[in-house]
Amino acid sequence: MGLFAFLKKRFWHQLLFSLGINAHLKGFLEAHPYQGAAKGLCLPVLNCYSCPGALTSCPLGSLQYMIYSNARHLSLMVLGIVGSAGILAGRWVCGHLCPFGFYQDLLKKTTKKSLKLPRIWTKMKYVILFLFVVLLPLLLSKPAFCTLICPAGTLQGGLTLVWSLGIPLGFIYFWKLGLLLFFSAFSLVIPRFFCRTACPLGAFLGFFNKFSLFSIHVDMNTCISCDACRKVCPVDINISEHPASAECIRCGDCLPACPVSCITFTSPLSKEKGAFNEASL
């Protein structure tokens, strides 16, 4: 445990990252987004670029823009950045860095009640990825996901900007506000409700969970199948059966919960499987 030991805690990863990429405080006072060079960068997290504090662009918004603008192709840079993050660590960014994931985690901390999500709901995010992020922007020449669904845009841009712009609010605004309330209300009782059901970025990153360099290993010789890992898992997966599940957000909550310490993080640099334990997080 060194000087930076506190940084290994997930809460601090999330807090510092969320504040860090929304640190353009002047934007809140002027009610205008940041316009510097960093806006050309898309970090692989759901963070609305219309948030007055946002220093970087949203990968989903940029992906849609490249499809419906004159470029009319999938953004190579966005695919490369999100794909690199995916191949390095799968959905680790969802569990440790995503500001909207952090928002849902904070909501969940306020209640003890927890409901199960029917497995079929988790398939919806793949439909949203194809339909709202690729197909509809191509057909309608509009950022369909941003306009019709994205609750991060409503939270970060809608609630902070719209009052200072003085533009009359229409149906879309209240539709999106309703969706934000819907996802927020369900996140109180179902951990990571939006990530599991509707996040296209999570759906895309999930493809990489199976072969990412940084992954989870379960020593089946030691596992006693007690289900303790599933009880603490925010996305309700049995990590001992599916360590590479596309739903796993690599939060690491299962590591300290395992009574026989058979769940570990591995990296290609580990000489032995399971070089990291919960203390490394």
Binding site: P33, Y34, Q35, K39, G40, A54, S62, K142, G157, I172
Partner: peptide, 14 residues
Amino acid sequence: IKNNGSLICFGCIG
């Protein structure tokens, strides 16, 4: 991407 991100996305904010 920088130019697009520098403007307010009216769709995003509803």
